[in-house]
Design a protein around this nucleic acid. Sequence first.
DNA 1: AAAGAAAGCAACCGCGTGGCT
DNA 2: AAGCCACGCGGTTGCTTTCTT
Length: 318
Amino acid sequence: MGRSPCCEKAHTNKGAWTKEEDDRLIAYIRTHGEGCWRSLPKAAGLLRCGKSCRLRWINYLRPDLKRGNFTEEEDELIIKLHSLLGNKWSLIAGRLPGRTDNEIKNYWNTHIRRKLLNRGIDPATHRPVNDNPNNHPTTTTATPTNINNNNNNSSLDVTTTTTISFANPTPTTTHHLVKEEILDDETKHNSDRVTDRRKIKNTVPEILERCPDLNLELRISPPHHHQNNSSSLSSSYIHPQGQHGNYHHHQHQPLKTGGRSSSVSGGTTICFACSLGIENSKECSCTTSLHGTSSSSTGYDFLGLKTGVLDYRSIKMK
DNA sequence: AAAGAAAGCAACCGCGTGGCT
DNA sequence: AAGCCACGCGGTTGCTTTCTT
């Protein structure tokens, strides 16, 4: 399908934003709210493309952003979430109020990767770096994603599985995806930063039992959101360097049924297996024929968030 | 003190997706 | 059904800052 350019590039600024541009964008969004990014630049008197405005707002100007160092708790949460979700930064960010996907992505690549490597854990697989993948039986071939991720490095030893344990994880049913991202040694890492940076590629966003302490019987709920989140740009806005406004991270707002990645509508709930498209597998915990009318009344504590249902919409699996 | 290397991070880019016409 | 549009995501780039020699 055709696609028009997002903006008239010839007449747009690029690069770092100036204070004046920031102020214009902030003022406009305070008045008109978010959205209509395509038309926003013109309306706000900015020589930027809408995309750029959106990014600037979401990643930097939103007043509900935390602008500080990541805490140890956040680190660990990111690691656990990454082990479950892979490079789904927006999903991970959805569990970290005040943090953006971009920020988490950068933080992962600059800090957490190294932290895990120092612990002897492969950040791509969340398994010990010297763990022999041959010890783990494989059950399926690589997904297209895997293939794409690996075909530019013939040395990669790709062994994968799609066995996913959700409902009643037991040792016997838990296999591991192992996409060994061969990151040579630190020496190489240090000697060729640019090359390495491009090598720090996407991990495989597959779900596996990498964190034994996590209950993988997922019931992911809509992220907590405050009552006063909706309208709100107005009264308690604080400048980017300030801490809090009274409106909420967009990803914490109630998610609309039938979102862009959903094929199930009507506000129903499905199990995580269904959200991954394996609704007929034994891992599927849906009890009804329509995967989407699951009786998720129990509620599980996913990462400490007690919820009533799995709302797959909050994880927006692609 | 200077230069180069490494690290950090904001911003850009391309593309997938759902909604609308 | 097809095409367009807007949005959002993940990966990448490149500039700035910090560290090392």
